[in-house]
Each structure stands twice: as C-alpha cells, then as structure tokens.
Amino acid sequence: MVAFAEEERFSRRKHHKDSRSCPVAAAYCLSEAGITLADVDEIAIAFNPAWPTPSVICTDAELIAELLDPALFGHHRPRQVTVVEHHLAHATSAFPPAASTRPPSWWSTAPATASPLPSPTAPPTD
C-alpha cells in the first residue's frame, strides 16, 4: 500500500458529513504514489447510486464529476466507475494491511454478476 487518507482529515468534518465524495483524499493518494487519475485503470465506489436497482457500473457524468472533482485531477474524468457493495468495500480495504500473502477466498475484482470463485487452494507452507 502506498497511501491511505480519510477525506475527513482534509475537510475537518467527522465522517466527511453530508458528502459522499472523497476527491481531496484521492488526489493526495495519487500524488503520494506519483501517478495521475489518467494512470488508474478502475475506480470503485462503495455505494449504488441506482439503488434499489442492482448496478455494477455507474456512467452518470454529473455524479462522477461530484465524486472526483475534475479540477483536482487535471480535468480528467473517467467515463465510468465500478459499484462495489458497501460492506464488501469495508472488508476488502482491510486486506492490504493484514498479515497475509494471499487474498481471502471472498476477495475478487469480478463483477457482482460473475459466478462465485472456486475454492481457494491451501496456503503456502513456507
């Protein structure tokens, strides 16, 4: 992991109240990694803007601009973002700092509509 930042550290609002975006924290992390938003292959959001209708991607240009303020990212705006179930996003964010070299069996970048992953193989014994 290169960087991690909570938006509330920049906005000084607990849980970044009354907002669903984190553009300053995202810009900070990209800067720490030495990359730009244009270098990122996929962006995930931890809520479904189409709820209650199931959704795997969001292509709403206005919402994407709200989530990732183009002024902070060299006016680059992705065409779409991937929708990840909120609680799965919490669980997935715990994996990188965990003391493990293998992802847990539920960790996948496959879309929610994909078939379940096969059972994981036994962990290395070395």
Rank of each mutant, 00 (worst) to 15 (best):
E85W: 02
L63A: 05
A46H: 03
L88Y: 09
C58V: 05
Q80P: 13
P23S: 05
H90T: 06
I64M: 07
A50W: 14
K14S: 10
A26I: 03
I45F: 00
H90Y: 04
I64C: 07
D41M: 10
I64T: 09
A50E: 14
A94I: 11
P78E: 03
H75T: 10
D60I: 11
G34F: 08
Y28F: 09
E32Y: 15
H16K: 03
I43G: 00
K17Q: 13
T36P: 06
R77N: 12
R79E: 15
S19T: 12
T92W: 15
I57T: 15
L30M: 02
V83N: 02
A26L: 05
N48M: 02
E42T: 07
H75Y: 11
C58T: 04
Q80T: 14
A71H: 09
E62V: 15
A25D: 00
E42C: 08
L63G: 06
A89P: 05
C58H: 03
F95Y: 12
L88N: 12
E85Q: 09
H16I: 00
V84A: 06
S21T: 05
T59D: 15
V24S: 09
A25L: 01
V24W: 06
R20I: 00
G34I: 08
G74V: 05
T82R: 06
L88E: 10
D18G: 13
G74L: 02
F73Y: 03
S93Y: 03
D60E: 15
L88K: 12
R13M: 08
H76N: 07
T82C: 06
A94W: 13
V83C: 04
R77H: 09
S21Y: 07
L30H: 03
K14I: 13
D39G: 00
S21A: 12
V84F: 10
A50C: 15
H86T: 01
R79L: 14
A38S: 09
I43F: 02
D39N: 02
H90N: 07
A71F: 12
Q80I: 13
A46I: 04
A91M: 11
H90W: 03
A91D: 12
H76E: 08
D39V: 00
D60V: 10
F73R: 02
D69N: 12
H76M: 04
H15W: 11
A71P: 05
S19K: 09
L37A: 08
P49V: 07
